[in-house]
């Protein structure tokens, strides 16, 4: 379009300002540049200051001299153990809950279920319809609770972990099993892992339900029509088809849980332990927690700065490794499905 010559004279004069337009678009693009710049600065700064710290000693040795020298091996081990236990709890329960919600609770909403129950007055099978109605209520309430839980501040999980797991359950166990001696009633691996598992549960549930939803109803129908039971259909058709989404959601939840510090502040993390965690009742060191302590409570900030940067570097590297694994697994299972194994 060249100019205004073709514009009928009836319309008011219409001036195009292509240069100004381009400026605005450039401004929009500037936002992207700024974000990229910020990311570059952060990662670059950490890389420059932290990579130099990396050595075999750093990764495999415990800290010495009041956290100003040595390595962070125990923190790596502690983080790994914590994440593993958290995964073992959160993923199966999360997937099972999502499968329960999507495949075993009725598909209709509470309103329809209630109407059907009222309409069945005086006929047999009434109790069944009432049960159906109750499960629809449960399903709605649960989905709402899960959605809200996903937005709850992570420190609140720490509150729950301290008040419920440590004081209530742990304290109760100590009174019952150890006559008041404190064994379970303090921060340790299992309580911290359970707290983190609760934190990641909503992510896994939501991602799994999304994945289950992508499997067309017709697939389940075809399987049932061939004489399969509900579990056989879930195991052979639904879960395999939903696997990419489930795996992605699982990895996403795990990598988020690995980086969270607030929930473990009072449920088991320690900044210096002369031993490695071996039992569920042991406390543990943790990369993220180490970063927090070194940043805010270090007696000599300048002396611990190198260790601090190194720890941050390792933490970031591990997080990104997890994320990358998730992306790769998702891509691989997707291409596998296209070939049709």
């Amino acid at each position: 379009m060249s100019g205004d010559s073709w514009v009928p004279s009836v319309l008011p004069a219409y001036r195009r300002r292509p240069l100004l337009d381009r400026l605005w678009v450039a401004l929009l693009g500037l936002s992207v540049v700024l974000i990229l710049l910020a990311l570059f600065l952060i990662l670059g700064n950490i890389a420059i200051n932290g990579a130099g710290q990396l050595s075999w000693e750093f990764i495999s040795q415990p800290p010495r001299e009041g956290l100003t020298a040595g390595g962070i091996y125990p923190a790596i081990v502690g983080t790994a153990m914590l994440v593993m236990i958290m995964t073992v709890v959160a993923v199966p329960f999360g997937v099972a809950t999502a499968v329960y919600l999507h495949e075993y609770t009725p598909a209709e909403g509470p309103r329809l279920a209630w109407v059907r129950f009222r309409a069945s007055a005086g006929r047999k099978g009434r109790a069944k319809l009432l049960l159906r109605f109750v499960s629809t209520l449960l399903a709605v309430a649960t989905r709402s609770a899960v959605a809200n839980l996903a937005g709850v501040p992570s420190i609140v999980f720490g509150l729950f972990g301290l008040g419920f797991f440590i004081q209530f359950v742990g304290g109760g166990m100590d009174r019952a099993l150890h006559g008041g001696e404190i064994v379970w009633g303090q921060g340790n691996l299992i309580w911290a892992a359970l707290t983190l598992a609760l934190l990641t549960l909503p992510t896994v549930i939501v991602a799994t339900e999304e994945a289950l939803r992508t499997v067309a109803w017709e697939q389940r129908e075809a399987s049932l029509a061939l004489g399969a039971t509900r579990w056989e259909t879930i195991r052979r058709i639904v879960l395999p088809a939903a696997m990419p989404g489930i795996l992605t959601g699982g990895i996403l939840g795990i990598s988020r849980g690995a980086g969270e510090v607030a929930p473990i502040l009072f449920t088991g993390a320690a900044y210096y332990l002369p031993y490695l965690p071996e039992r569920l009742t042991d406390q543990f060191m943790h990369l993220g927690y180490h970063v927090l302590i070194l940043s805010t409570q270090s007696p000599d900030v300048e002396a611990t700065k190198p260790i601090l940067f190194g720890t941050v570097f390792v933490l970031l590297a591990l997080t990104f490794l997890l994320n990358l694994t998730g992306v790769l697994i998702r891509a691989r299972t997707r291409s596998k499905m296209r070939e049709g194994r």
Binding site: L39, N45, G259, E260, V261, T319
Partner: peptide
């Protein structure tokens, strides 16, 4: 890149803000 930014744990961001 945005996903990368999202993957940064908040303790790392806090550290960066505090120290640098």
């Amino acid at each position: 890149v945005i996903e990368l930014l999202a993957g940064i744990p908040s303790v790392v961001l806090g550290f960066f803000a505090l120290i640098v």
